[in-house]
Amino acid sequence: MEQESGEVITPAHALQAVRLGAGLGEATREKLARVGQILVRGAGAVLFREGEKTPYLGVVISGRVGIRTYVAGRGDVTLSTVEAGDIFGWSVLVPPSRAHATVWAVTDVTVLGFPAESLRRVLAADPDLAAAVYQHALSALGRRITSTRLQMLDLFGSPRTTEPVRPPGALSRRLADVRRGAATEEPTS
């Protein structure tokens, strides 16, 4: 997967090297590669934005792609990153194909993109290919959901934020927080 700088990379090469392509037969892979395009973006570039129509299904060939969303008061928050070999832009496969988050280049990236229209066309024409692509997307999504769940648990978070409403000794616990100087008391009503 490592690309020497300057070397020209074709969609067919790129696809062969990633999991999505490795799972396909040679003829099918060729067919898919034919609609692919290599995109190179500099660090910081936005590939597409939340709310837009998703322009393509992407596979990271090198570099790191970030998925972020804007939270008022917190600014842009990166929710996850996509590393070399993994896909992004899966919403292209599911109408209405609207991007759920903004995708940006965390580092310089090389991406293999399958533009929405032509991708839909080859998939419609070849049910086997479609099945393989959907399966791949599903398993990538599955992994992402598992990770997201773990992230949601906020496992490394402050124990105080994950406390049940009235855990054992909670009352005296909070009291002790005051001694620690950790309590920032806001008026309560």
């Binding site: 972020r68 600014g75 928050v77 990166t78 929710l79 996850s80 990153t81 773990l150 992230q151 490394f156």
Partner: peptide, 14 residues
Amino acid sequence: VDRAGPDWLGPVGV
């Protein structure tokens, strides 16, 4: 990291 701002160039996830 589980979450990060725009300055973080490393991976985000678990």
